[in-house]
């Protein structure tokens, strides 16, 4: 036990000590680090467990049923968006607009239901609208050759403006049967189920299917991928569509959970949270490498931090500072670890 605690504390110390210190590290630390490298999800999982232990010791209400339900609300939809962001990041792009798609989709669903469509079909219409935004992101980026940062910054404002216009700036209430409402987000178990199910399915897609393989190829070596005949533009566009659709789906889930569709919900906050979850979970911003399970765990860790500090009475302002520091520290460790890996096994 004490040994594993030592190994946990050493990565925090390494960045200041330089590569020599890392090379002379003990074999036990090496073994664990090697495991953490091979299974990138391990380190974020350990961080999550340690945080849960800390908060449970500080406040015994942390692991109560009510608070766990809170925790799911903090994390589930962020995790779903993060899964989409992982695919876009792995293919070598990024999507800033997904938080605005999250806000737009429930409104499209609401108006489709208002026009007389059954609610299930209305959800699908909403997701199609979300996918259309993804399609625009993909086509503008790959055909016109704009950097994804610029493209999705543009659609971020466009979609936000569209949402505010069609809603008139006022929230509305979604209507559906009780079962439908709880199945689509109102029940914390259902929300957790969606997040975990989607993460498992998408992890499989990324690692075990042609689509995933070509996504990794496209992000890892765009020129080489094109030379062997991979349709790089199609892959990137498809992943923009996937990300936007997942963002839309997350928006629908939260709309039913909250019981209100707010034009100001989500937005950049949830987009950055999802991006942070993906990155903390082990997905590279440079493309070619990522994990959906890691993003799920990353979203959980962010949720645990937010929920735990709320229980401890830490203010939202302080929380943002802690979150920022957490991102910097995790990423510094990640960079260190990959340098160490290249030296150790190269």
């Amino acid at each position: 036990m004490s040994q594993s605690l030592d190994t946990r504390s050493s990565p925090g110390a390494t960045p200041g000590e330089g590569p020599d210190a890392t090379r002379q590290a003990s074999p036990a630390w090496r073994r664990l680090a090697r495991l953490a490298l091979r299974q990138r999800e391990v380190s974020i999982f350990l961080a999550g467990v340690l945080l849960v232990l800390y908060f449970q010791f500080s406040n015994s209400a942390f692991l109560s049923t009510d608070n766990l339900a809170n925790l799911v609300q903090f994390s589930a939809t962020t995790a779903i968006i993060a899964a989409g962001e992982v695919f876009v990041l792995v293919s070598g792009e990024l999507d800033l607009s997904v938080g605005m798609v999250y806000a737009l989709t429930p409104f499209v669903m609401f108006f489709a239901a208002g026009a007389g469509l059954p609610v299930g079909l209305a959800v699908i219409v909403g997701l199609l609208a979300a996918g259309a935004v993804g399609l625009v992101n993909g086509v503008v980026t790959t055909v016109l050759g704009l950097p994804a940062f610029v493209t999705t910054l543009g659609t971020l404002f466009l979609v936000n403006g569209l949402t505010l216009t069609i809603s008139g700036g006022f929230p509305v209430q979604p209507t559906a049967s009780g079962t439908f409402t709880s199945l689509f987000g109102a029940s914390p178990l259902a929300e957790l189920g969606w997040a975990v199910l989607l993460a498992l399915v998408l992890q499989f897609v990324l690692n075990k299917t042609r689509w995933g393989l070509h996504t990794i190829g496209t992000g890892g070596n765009p020129v080489g991928a094109a030379e062997v005949g991979i349709k790089v533009r199609l892959i990137k566009t498809g992943n923009f569509v996937l990300c936007a659709a997942l963002g839309g789906f997350a928006g629908v889930l939260d709309a039913f959970r909250i019981g209100s569709i707010d034009p100001l919900a989500g937005g950049n906050d949830i987009m950055f949270a999802a991006m942070a979850a993906a990155v903390i979970g082990g997905t590279l911003l440079t493309g070619g490498s990522g994990t959906v399970i890691g993003a799920l765990l990353g979203a959980a860790v962010l949720g645990i931090l937010k929920d735990g500090f709320t229980l401890l009475g830490v203010s939202a302002y302080t929380f943002d500072m802690i979150l920022g520091a957490a991102i910097l520290v995790t990423m510094a460790i990640n960079v260190r670890l990959s340098i160490w890996r290249d030296q150790g096994e190269g």
Partner: peptide
Amino acid sequence: QDLALINELNVYRNMFLQ
């Protein structure tokens, strides 16, 4: 010359890419 290999992928997945 650039070999069109994907660094992140293992050997056999590179060999059958596409």
